[in-house]
Design a protein around this nucleic acid. Structure first.
Lengths: 223, 223
DNA sequence: AACAAGATGAGAATTCTCCTGGTTGAGGAT
DNA sequence: ATCCTCAACCAGGAGAATTCTCATCTTGTT
């Protein structure tokens, strides 16, 4: 799997490319829009991670030029926290997903995986009784009815579902969900668990507390 | 199991190496990045505990150099909570786990165990007749039914099961359970043994007392 | 028998969880 | 711009569960 990484901040570029290599991808890091455009014209990539604020040639332009060449390579856009409009514009222009900085590295990896899966035609669903979680589309549904869950709620739920029947330690949950520059308190996790319970218990899906350790998604049993 | 401990604060280094030795690991403590780099080039370790703020050679660099040598030894990174962005960006890079200071010693030990298990491949299940203990998932079940055990009860049970049929000295149990600083009385162990017996004897699982020494999980025999 | 070691039940001390409510900040609507 | 809504996060206190000690009783050893 070959990824083109377009990011002008050199520290971040190094960090990301090393992380992605460790995750098993082949990474070509470039630092400006012109280099990205050239690389995309000359090579075939499985995915592009594209920062928007770039020297020489704007990220948005790179994306537009790519799509103009009828190239459907998945593109994951990185935007600054306050680049609200950019995001909307990016999705319109043909980005497949976006992530606002700062983001948690695991989340980037998760989204990359999801995009690659989608591109490969695969669809990944976690199910637990009447509960379904479409990781690609970030959609949760119960009994086929789409249900509303916030981003954080989904993150917690995803971890719990992936380890259903096993204890997930609270600090581990906190780490999975935190951004990379500050960790959230464990109390926050408790609040999300509380909210998830409110939404899930009416459907017979229970999250058990393991005192002193964490939480566990109980195996589903019909009532 | 051989652990390289890289920590420049001498007090913490001593504390940790002592604790890890008590937990049964072979520990090589070093105090700076250069020493760590040399040690890693010359020896094979099962795990590295790596502080990031180091003299002579930065912890992040040690890690990168290690990975550049295609060395996959698990690395657990320790970071200061206030050592904000600079390192925190890179710390998730190539580290297998990380822990922010200050941390509780039991948590460090738990994560070390988890990393070693993961490196050894696969999940660990202890079984003893109808009793099953999934260490990673922290789930104990009897005859397939999940059973409720408190954290401390699990700790004692784990040691007993790992050395089933052999005598476990009481102080070893006490030390497995004790926290950072304060030791607990021997009677406390007796209480937990008592509780375990109450839960296990109905299923024909017996813990024998070896007077003056400790306890022993009897080989399981059907009734 | 006399002493030491262990078992046991009860409860105090400690730790953990749950939940309410409030602050902040982003994004959308007016 | 300004207001509004909603998500994210944290603080704090009531209540719950666990941990651990103590006092007492039982068992084992010499």
């Amino acid at each position: 799997m070959r990824i083109l990484l377009v990011e002008d901040d050199s520290a971040l570029r190094d960090t990301l490319s090393q992380a992605l290599r460790l995750a098993g991808y082949g990474v070509d890091p470039v630092s400006d829009g012109r280099a990205a455009d050239n690389a995309l014209a000359a090579n075939i990539y499985d995915l592009v991670v594209l920062d928007l604020g770039l020297p020489y040639l704007d990220g948005m332009t790179v994306l537009r030029r790519l799509r103009d060449r009828k190239n459907r390579t998945p593109v994951l856009v990185l935007t600054a926290r306050d680049g609200i409009n950019e995001r909307v514009q990016g999705l319109k222009t043909g980005a497949d997903d976006y992530l606002t900085k700062p983001f948690a590295l695991p989340e980037l990896e998760a989204r990359i995986e999801a995009l690659l899966r989608r591109a490969a035609g695969g669809q990944v669903r976690l199910t637990h009784g009447p509960l379904e979680f479409d990781l690609d589309g970030h959609v949760v549904s119960i009994n086929g009815e789409p249900a509303h869950f916030s981003v954080r709620e989904m993150m917690v739920l995803e971890v719990l579902m992936q380890r259903a029947g096993q204890v997930v330690i609270k600090t581990r949950l906190a780490q999975k969900i935190s951004n990379w520059d500050d960790e959230i308190g464990v109390n926050t996790i408790e609040v999300y668990i509380h909210r998830l319970r409110k939404k899930l218990e009416p459907w017979g899906i229970r999250i058990r507390t393991i005192h002193g350790l964490g939480y566990l998604l109980e195996p589903y049993a019909k009532i």
